[in-house]
Design a binder for these strands. Structure first.
Lengths: 191, 191
DNA sequence: GCTTATAGCAAACGATCGTTCGATATAGTC
DNA sequence: GACTATATCGAACGATCGTTTGCTATAAGC
């Protein structure tokens, strides 16, 4: 029954997306995969390594869904617009059964020092840097008011996507993602 | 050593703010309070009841810090402005050692049905309704473009505060709350 | 064919989990 | 003073946690 390491991590992503990385237990994951706890530990060393691999896989999923298709677009305004649509699509598709994984991890570890917190922080920092760079290009091209700080735009886009996705899931508001998209477009100076 | 029920819940809020409501364990809380697990159960019945009481206390803290001082202000634009400042102040003061409690609970339970999810959802709904009503007044008074949906404004304010607070804590960006405040003011048509 | 390395297993470890049980001590009521 | 109700306790329960240990089977290298 033992499947590949990659399949194992993907299964862990699905569990942790709902239960959180702290709710990811070796016993339950092993049962779900039809293998033993010891076999799981043999692959990853210990639980924390599994958690880190799981977080890394979720980050890769996000990058593949939101960033990679956007590199075809012209940097700046056009690419920002594309990123927003891909991002909303990523959230709408329920790529993670329990909502945006990095948001879950961010909340879980924002007050708890350790490697998992560091990994999550690094991923968010990198994504914010990417968004900032795109906003900078947009501003330099005159597509954004010169007074707008690109870092502000990046931070705002991130806050809206992350906060909007959670609130929408929690309240069951079917229009939440449409509201979020509109707010993100306004923040990026697209409307 | 046994303290009042209220002091017990406040201690639980501080623990759960960092560890999450799922990370709140009877044994550790009992140790921290210098009492026995059984004594804790005697007060609350079971762990879930303690979790619900803890969430309710955190919601009350938020209301006391952000909503109650704002009722002195004129409804509409003026009160929205006041709410934003109180909200940012509430986040800046680290009223919860682990960040906004309701945000933590929202993320923790948005994909896990049960009473805790329902409680968190009801609190967010109620707060969104309050914000919507204030935005409606502001729009009727001409302080907001007539085309702006008050519910959109409320949703956006909530997303920004919740998402911005988490990202700021995680990345250690000291300007995060200032950015969040500026974005919230823009969303509410205040600048 | 023999040796070595790898992967996975069952079983057990001590720790902690939430909960239950029976005893005790205190406060209030008659 | 006797009785009742309330609160808290220590101790134990079965379950699950992450981890370690020793065994077995398969594959690779020589």
């Amino acid at each position: 029954m033992a499947r590949s390491r990659d399949a194992t991590v993907q299964a862990a992503v699905d569990v942790a997306s709902v239960e959180g990385l702290e709710g990811l237990s070796l016993g339950r994951l092993a049962d779900g995969l039809g293998m033993s706890k010891a076999g799981l530990v043999g692959r990853f060393g210990n639980r924390e390594s599994l958690q880190r691999a799981t977080l890394a896989a979720a980050i890769a999923r996000f990058r593949r869904a939101v960033w990679e298709p956007a590199v075809d677009s012209e940097p700046g305004r056009e690419r920002l617009e594309r990123i927003i649509d891909l991002w909303i699509g990523h959230l709408r598709d329920d790529v993670f059964p329990g909502g945006c994984f990095v948001t879950t991890a961010s909340v879980e570890f924002d007050a708890r020092p350790g490697p998992l917190r560091d990994d999550a922080a690094a991923a968010v920092e990198e994504w914010l840097a990417t968004l900032t760079s795109e906003a900078e290009r947009a501003r330099d091209a005159g597509d954004l008011p010169a007074a707008r700080d690109p870092r502000d735009v990046a931070f705002e886009l991130h806050s809206l996507a992350s906060g909007g996705s959670v609130a929408g899931r929690l309240t069951g508001d079917s229009r939440a993602l449409a509201r979020t998209r509109a707010a993100m477009r306004r923040a990026a100076g697209l409307d």
